[in-house]
Design a protein around this nucleic acid. Structure first.
Lengths: 207, 207
DNA sequence: AGCGTAAGCAAGTAGGTACTTGCATACGCA
DNA sequence: TGCGTATGCAAGTACCTACTTGCTTACGCT
């Protein structure tokens, strides 16, 4: 039963590198240091194996969250964005292949959508909490604000790898994304309450 | 010589649907209504054919642009974002496969980066022009602002397909993205000059 | 000691893949 | 009329793919 884990891990790596078609059972077996036959005896088929790989990703997750009672939006969002980006970056190869193969393997759809949905929903409800506490303007486009922050998280995590020069250095990225995001939701200063719906007095931005 | 074009078109479609590995020469030949041998006689090899596909995409393009002399940022940006999204959406399947296969086929890197770079650079220099004219705040994080707008353009164009429910309706998307973006660059009103923007008429206090 | 279970190994099946070869057909142009 | 060029067709090569079968080894538990 040790083999099972080794095969799953190997399959994850090989699938991440080569995609579904490119992840041959032979390659996976070699990577796992296991006889190819063992792979079929354990999982039945290549498809079943790779579904198991995505399945264990779908389950068993402690996903990053934002506090129920916002105190320091800037710091809280920065932490959330940083860890979210890191997590997406880890799954980048898996994700990008899955996205490409969605037409041919629709059973992978959940895996492709999940992360995006989680981040989006977390941000959306957080903005609402900020609004309720007067920490964000009330006249803003909440959904679009969430879409934009989610987009930059996904974009950075997915594309920095092959277009590195357009993104800020990794260490600064989260903070700077959040800083700009705070302007969208009308909370440009990291600690002050914001002029409710009177969005026309943008406070002097920091830095 | 008619065959050449038909093969290229067919290859584009098949590659978009199935990726490099899945785009078999047989499939392409059938899709083109051409004998498989003709394909090899014309392009030499499968790799050469698919490089030609990406190549003709890299060349010969009238890419969307932003005016050199900004007049109505909101309208200009909305138009730019809308057509950019449309163009990226057309290339979505090609792009997503190319991104996934980048490790194995690095020669496709240019194709994967180009669109992103173009959009990013266009937006960046446009923001600078806005700042120079006092149409955007001068104390903003220009690069991050551009990254965020680019990100939402790419994200919408690439992911709306499989996570439609988080994005605004297609007809409103560009306008709403731009509206939020204008808040980032400190130009929330669609036509007015903005408070802290003092490139041409240096005003006393930012920071 | 005996037995079940997990695993390896060698070989084979049936089909797909890129690519080649040899030959036949059609069309345009001199 | 003849010839080059583009294309089709049938067949074949060499290799890879998922998956199977039959047999062997090794370990753990009762």
């Amino acid at each position: 039963m040790i083999s099972r884990e080794r095969i799953l891990e190997a399959a994850r790596r090989v699938y991440a590198k080569h995609g579904f078609r490119g992840a041959t059972t032979r390659l996976i077996a070699i990577e796992a240091g296991v006889n190819e036959v063992t792979l079929f005896r354990t999982f039945g088929s290549k498809s079943a194996l790779l579904e198991a790989v995505l399945g264990q990703h779908n389950a068993a997750e402690a996903k990053p969250a934002l506090p129920a009672e916002p105190v320091d939006p800037s710091a809280e969002l920065t932490a959330f964005v940083a860890t979210s980006m890191e997590r997406v970056r880890e799954m980048r190869p898996l994700l990008v292949h899955t996205m490409g193969e969605l037409d041919e393997r629709p059973e992978a759809a959940e895996f492709a959508c999940r992360g995006r949905h989680d981040v989006h929903d977390t941000i959306t409800s957080y903005i609402r909490r900020l609004q309720a506490r007067g920490l964000a303007a009330s006249d803003i486009d909440v959904d679009v604000a969430a879409v934009m922050l989610t987009a930059v998280v996904m974009s950075d995590a997915m594309a920095r790898h092959f277009v590195p020069d357009v993104y800020p250095p990794l260490g600064e990225a989260a903070e700077r994304y959040v800083h700009s995001f705070l302007r969208i939701i009308g909370a440009p200063a990291s600690n002050g309450v914001v002029p409710g719906s009177a969005a026309l007095t943008p406070s002097p931005a920091t830095r």
